[in-house]
Design a binder for these strands. Structure first.
Length: 740
DNA sequence: CCTACTACGCTTTTT
DNA sequence: GCGTAGTAGG
């Protein structure tokens, strides 16, 4: 066996403990991926376990790919028959074979968030639900949450009897689910739910997979939700060889249903669990680690642990407060340049932020400074309009039941099939209880269809033709034919704009992805390609080989490491986000934000820089935020002297330049109207986001937001008794009672 | 049936 | 500030 000597005592223990439940509490940078790969190698080579009896589950395809690669390197033979994949792709693979047992067609489609919204809108219209009263977003959250907790529409309905609002939402959930089934579609959450359903209702199928996956390993276990837990525990039910690796301090997906109880209660659910803690960090300097510990120890609900390292103390952590987001980006760019000059490579840097929109300023600066970068996240490649259009064609050719896909392309490019015609077809389909596409196929029988027949017929014929020729056409040829014969490419070319060209380029990229797929797959089929494409996250496309600075959200950065890390936008209201400050349970939400901060800090190997901006433009308005409480939680002695942290934020005298800069900023972004200056605008406020203030009428409250209005500061306060109020600072005469 | 304009609402984080 | 949804006019 390969040198177990390379592992420390705890790591070795984890590798050697192969039988029975095992919980590995692995701190950041403690070498858990290494343990997992060695463990797999050990199982195969020393314990005579067949490779196909091993299932390793990760969260992203990228992580799966990396693990596979590392396993390949140390396992001589049979590595390819180990299942290393994400929860979602594991489920897709299983469902693909057995979903007919649940009454679905095996050629199901996967709906992304946009598709979900379309269905939901439709459902709301049919149920005559006012989408102003029931926000689309809320409804989707409710549905997703129910699914994550493995609550069916019927169960949900009976659990909320008596609450009118929730009853309504239950109705939506029920109807939404019906619609999905009708379209032979599953959303992301369904992939997990349906797999568990399958196992619960078909013991024979379950046993087959239990026997197949005798050894199961789950990475990033702290981010599993209830269904995922159910899935894993049901699969491991027979042999009990379940090894999970996680770190409660890095649990950052509560909003998505991740259930921290899964890790905290693991030992209760699996008696005889062996618990191993990996506490030695191999990644970061002592300073970075101390900063991380300083922050995370402010969380109350966590398992106590002590990360330590043999690494050197390293450079001090840097905090830099800048005037604006613009200057923030400029500072980071300059700092990167400096380090590049002393030998660092582009790929050594990552800029991490809380929200995707923060990437824009950095992008601009990097472009100007000629620094190659890659933005991870934001709009997923596969959610771009042109890509979704082409995919909708492919879905229609592959699965005639997906009404959504057909609706999307029936008139794209323009064929003169408008809303009136579509409604007629829809009504006809509903009256006959057939799918939309089937209705199109018998367009001749639709009453009052008129001339539209001549427009629909050729479209249907085209789809039919492609279906027939599916066997002989490669994906590349098929997509090219779609582009040519529908006029899709022609339209874009005719447009001649840069944007149209970018769209064409994107489609080109889709084609090359299709080509790669066909080259790599054993038996390439359209349906499988579509499945694969549906489950791609943006982070998956990050190759270690390209030498670029990476820009991404803190969430996307989980599991990665970089020599130089910048945490940008360290401001209360940005990070922690105002949503968490204003939440019903701010304590818990802020603890989640703090874990996110911990994840961010621990990505850094050599140097960590945190930055904040005094003034930040959000949605065209200037915001004045306090320096993030997380910065203040970093022990002072760790911060270098280039650093400036205001002690009591907003209480002290502002630097002279700031009022001027602010005026300039306001002038630059707002139309200057002298009449507006009737109210005397306070030069600056002595309170900021997160501070406690009192109001003569409303009593005490917490400041949620401070916005630059034209003539005054607009302050949003959540009062303990009076609720949330927006008011002008000069009238409100708020008094600060305590700062954070 | 399509296009152009206006109003509104929205932003956490993602498989 | 931006994108989308809804509406009016061609």
């Amino acid at each position: 066996m390969h040198d177990l000597e390379l592992l420390n005592k705890e790591q070795q223990e984890a590798v050697l403990h192969t039988e029975g439940p095992l919980l590995i509490l692995a701190g950041a940078g403690s070498g858990k991926t290494r343990v997992l790969t060695y463990r797999i190698a050990h199982l195969i080579e020393e314990c005579e376990v067949y490779p196909w009896n091993i299932l390793a589950i990760t969260f992203t395809n990228k992580a799966a790919g990396e693990m596979r690669e590392r396993v390949d390197r140390i396992v001589g033979q049979g590595a390819e028959s180990i299942w290393v994949s994400t929860f979602h792709s594991t489920c897709v693979r299983i469902l693909h074979r057995h979903i007919d047992r649940l009454g679905y067609d095996q050629k199901f489609t996967i709906y992304d968030t946009e598709d979900q919204k379309t269905v939901l809108k439709d459902v709301c219209r049919r149920l005559q639900i006012d989408t102003k009263l029931y926000k689309e977003r809320t409804l989707l959250n409710v549905i997703s949450h129910a699914k994550n907790e493995y609550i069916s529409p019927v169960e949900y309905q009976s659990s909320v009897r008596g609450d009118f609002r929730q009853e309504k939402m239950a109705e939506v959930y029920l109807e939404y689910q019906k619609e999905l089934k009708k379209n032979n579609a599953l959303d992301f959450d369904d992939l997990l739910v349906k797999t568990v359903e399958l196992f619960e209702s078909c013991p024979d199928v379950l046993e087959r997979y239990q026997d197949r996956f005798r050894y199961i390993m789950v990475d990033e276990y702290q981010d599993t939700n209830t269904v995922q837990f159910k899935l894993v525990s049901i699969l491991a039910g027979k042999y009990q060889n379940l090894c999970v690796v996680g770190d409660d301090d890095q649990s950052i997906y509560r909003f998505r249903g991740a259930n921290i109880e899964n890790i905290l209660n693991f030992e209760k659910v699996f008696p005889n669990t062996r618990v191993i803690k990996l506490e030695q960090n191999y990644r970061s300097t002592q300073n970075i680690l101390d900063a991380a510990n300083g922050v995370i120890q402010n969380n109350i609900s966590r398992k106590e642990k002590a990360l330590w390292t043999d690494n050197e103390r390293g450079e001090p952590v840097v905090f830099k407060l800048l005037q604006s987001a613009y200057e923030e980006a400029e500072y980071v760019t300059g700092d990167i340049r400096k380090k590049l000059n002393s030998g660092a490579a582009y790929r050594d840097f990552a800029v991490l932020y809380r929200t995707n929109y923060q990437s824009r300023t950095f992008e601009e600066k990097f472009l100007m400074a000629n620094i190659p970068y890659k933005i991870v996240g934001g709009v997923n490649f596969y959610s771009r309009k042109e890509i979704k259009d082409i995919l909708a064609y492919l879905k229609t050719i592959d699965n005639g039941k997906d009404d959504l896909a057909i609706h999307r392309i029936i008139n794209v490019p323009k064929r003169g099939i408008g809303a009136v015609t579509i409604n007629k077809v829809q009504a006809f389909a509903e009256s006959r209880e057939i799918s939309f596409f089937e209705a199109l196929e018998s367009v001749g029988e639709i009453p009052g269809i008129g001339k539209a027949l001549l427009k629909i017929q050729p479209f249907v014929n085209l789809i039919h033709e492609w279906r027939l020729r599916l066997g002989e056409l490669t994906l590349e040829k098929l997509i090219n034919e779609i582009l040519e014969r529908t006029g899709y490419a022609g339209d874009l070319e005719a447009e001649g704009t840069d944007e149209a060209q970018a769209r064409l380029d994107n489609i080109g990229e889709l084609i090359s992805k299709a080509v790669t797929y066909e080259k790599e797959a054993e038996h390439p089929v359209l349906g499988e390609f579509l499945e694969e494409v549906a489950l791609v996250a943006d982070i998956d496309s990050v190759a270690d080989s390209d030498d670029r600075v990476l820009l991404m959200t803190l969430h996307s950065a989980k599991g990665l490491e970089f020599p130089y890390v910048y945490l940008a936008g360290m401001e209360d209201g940005i990070f922690p986000s105002y949503m968490s400050i204003a939440a019903d349970d701010p304590l818990e939400e802020i603890e989640e934000e703090r874990r996110l901060c911990y994840v961010g800090i621990t990505r850094a190997m050599k140097e960590l820089t945190m930055t904040a901006a005094r003034i930040r433009m959000i949605r065209g308005e200037n915001h004045y935020n306090n320096v993030s409480r997380f910065v203040r939680e970093v022990p002072k002695e760790l911060l270098g002297n280039r650093t400036y942290v205001p002690d009591a934020p907003k209480a002290q005298e502002p630097p002279r330049s700031s009022a001027y800069a602010r005026a300039k900023e306001a002038f630059r972004t707002k139309t200057f109207d002298p009449k507006q200056f009737k109210v005397v605008k306070a030069d600056r406020l002595d309170y900021g986001v997160g501070d406690r203030v009192s109001h003569i009428k409303f009593g005490e409250g917490t400041v949620l937001d401070v916005t630059e209005g034209g003539r005054d500061y607009e302050v949003k306060v959540e009062f303990d008794r009076a609720g949330v109020k927006k008011m002008f600072a000069s009238f409100a005469k708020l008094k600060k009672i305590e700062s954070l």
